[in-house]
Simulated scan of single mutants.
Amino acid sequence: MRIHTAKKPITRMRVGIAIDVSTDISHEFLVQNGIYVLPSTIHMGDQSVVYDRDPERAVAFYRDHLADKGPASETTPLSVKEIEDLFLRRLVLDFDYIFLITLTSARSLTFENAHKASFTILQSYTQVRAAHRVPGPFALRVVDSQSLFTGPGVLAWEAARMVKAGHTPVEIRQRLDELAPRTYAYLVPHDLQYLLTRATARGDSTVGYFSYFLGNALQLRPIIRANRGTTRTVAKVRHHARAVEWLFQHGAAQIRRGLLVPMVGISYGGDPEKLKAMPGYEALASMAAAHGVELMLSMMAPATAVNIGSGAVSLAYCARDGGDFEG
């Protein structure tokens, strides 16, 4: 007589994604994919406000605080202890494996703090899950995007796609490790004086005094690229609108050459709907549609705008190389 035993149901691993609050990506995408945002605190004189990616709070920040309080403001990421508490209180229960994608470790303390916190989290989660009757192990991978602005958002988009498609954490980890050094994020600042003031306060020499005075005299705007943990100016273009057009033309050219991820992230220091009226956007959108590439528009995070000012434009993609920067 053959004995039939009931098969145990296969429980799918709950893979989650968390991001640094300064990652520029649309609020709708975050909600649709259940992505958790690690907040930061912006200190403005005697007032301190905790910001996540909530669009209404971001609009209020641009409207009420950035112009008069931005230059003297400071941002504080979650501390090691705060990250430990966040994971052990909630995230180790909600997920079995989490990818935490941060800004480049060269420019953000979030990667360092999360990396340090991971040791305590991985040593302590067992008792927390057992107390809530959550079976199985938990794992955390802190991913250094090596990028800024919209760059980490491209990695988050790809990670979310792979989670939906049922890829294993090992496959997702390998993919993110391959894409990080091939993520190219660009920035066209609008207010050079604001940018210089903030850069000087942070010891950042990307835009120096000479470049500032020359840029103001000739109305030149730098196009800054972040890749592999470093930033540098790749072009200087007269007038902000023309510099943005150059950036959009470059994005279209890279789409035509072929991207590693079918998504281009674009953010604006203000209402992102204004991007659609900027020179070069329509051609970029047409090129993206023709090649099956998604354009994701978002408002630049307040934590980023504190250092850059309003009106800045960022664009990011993943490709084999950054191509020739031509307008």
Rank of each mutant, 00 (worst) to 15 (best):
1 M>K: 10
4 H>T: 07
15 V>Y: 06
20 D>E: 10
26 S>K: 06
31 V>W: 06
32 Q>H: 13
39 P>V: 04
42 I>A: 02
43 H>N: 14
54 D>W: 06
55 P>N: 00
55 P>L: 03
59 V>Q: 05
64 D>H: 14
70 G>F: 02
78 L>F: 13
78 L>P: 11
84 E>L: 13
92 V>H: 15
99 F>W: 04
107 R>S: 12
115 H>Q: 08
115 H>K: 15
124 S>M: 10
132 H>Y: 05
133 R>N: 13
134 V>I: 09
137 P>M: 06
143 V>L: 05
145 S>K: 11
145 S>N: 14
147 S>Q: 09
147 S>D: 00
149 F>R: 13
166 G>F: 10
171 E>P: 02
173 R>L: 03
184 Y>G: 00
185 A>C: 07
187 L>V: 11
192 L>H: 05
199 A>G: 15
201 A>H: 10
208 G>I: 10
211 S>W: 06
222 P>Y: 01
223 I>P: 13
224 I>M: 11
224 I>P: 15
225 R>L: 12
235 A>Y: 11
239 H>P: 03
242 R>I: 11
261 V>M: 01
273 E>Q: 09
278 M>F: 09
284 L>T: 00
288 A>Q: 01
293 V>H: 00
294 E>P: 00
306 V>H: 02
308 I>K: 04
308 I>Y: 02
309 G>S: 06
309 G>D: 03
311 G>N: 12
325 F>P: 04
326 E>K: 10
